[in-house]
């Protein structure tokens, strides 16, 4: 007879131990501020606890994709919120003052890259962050975001082109 695993709490704790830093990191890269990233990561893991009965048959890689996908949705919701956007803008302004030096094109500092990324759509930011910060392949991005592989590739190509334009403009290039 098949038994339902009774130790969901233990399994969630294990997943949390393995993936919290990664999901927090992803949220921090999407939201710039650590306090917002902490709230967003908390939401993601609370959703994991809620949905775990449906996810428990997945392997850990698949659950990691699910966490990335959910974190993307939560981050996008935060970025649509005007008050949170103001908090991010204020943190960005402070970080420019603090760094006090002009970045070079091929050695950007984080706030400048974030600002350039921030001018892109949510979807573009998602694929760029997942690809270049989190190191996901395009088929993994497709799994995380619930889109087709070909869509992920096309979206990434377009996001790269747009980011080049934004970064180029930031340095006065045509």
């Amino acid at each position: 007879m098949q038994e339902m695993p009774s130790d969901h709490e233990g399994q969630i704790a294990e997943l949390y131990g393995s993936f919290y830093d990664r999901i927090f990191g992803y949220c921090a890269k999407r939201l710039f501020r650590k306090d917002l990233a902490e709230d967003a990561a908390a939401e993601v893991f609370l959703l994991l606890a809620e949905r775990y009965p449906l996810l428990r048959h997945r392997d850990s890689t698949s659950i990691l994709y699910w966490l990335y996908g959910t974190a993307s949705n939560v981050a996008a919701r935060y970025l649509r919120d005007a008050a949170r956007r103001r908090e991010i803008a204020s943190a960005l302004a402070k970080s420019h003052v603090a760094s006090g030096k002009a970045p070079e094109y091929d050695r950007l500092d984080w706030p400048v890259l974030y600002e350039a990324m921030n001018r892109l759509s949510d979807k573009d930011q998602e694929v760029l962050t997942l690809r270049y910060f989190e190191g996901l392949e395009t088929h993994e991005i497709a799994s995380a975001l619930g889109i087709r592989h070909v869509t992920a590739r096309v979206r990434l190509s377009r996001a790269i082109r747009k980011l080049r334009r934004k970064v180029g403009k930031a340095f006065g290039e045509e």
């Binding site: 919290y20 830093d21 927090f24 908390a42 609370l46 091929d106 950007l108 890259l113 760029l128 910060f133």
Partner: peptide
Amino acid sequence: IRLLFESVRPDVTPPAGSRERLERKL
């Protein structure tokens, strides 16, 4: 683009107590 992302090093370590706070919530 790869170079751009590799050149930035955002500090994304969770703040002190972050894990514990979320563990409590969970």
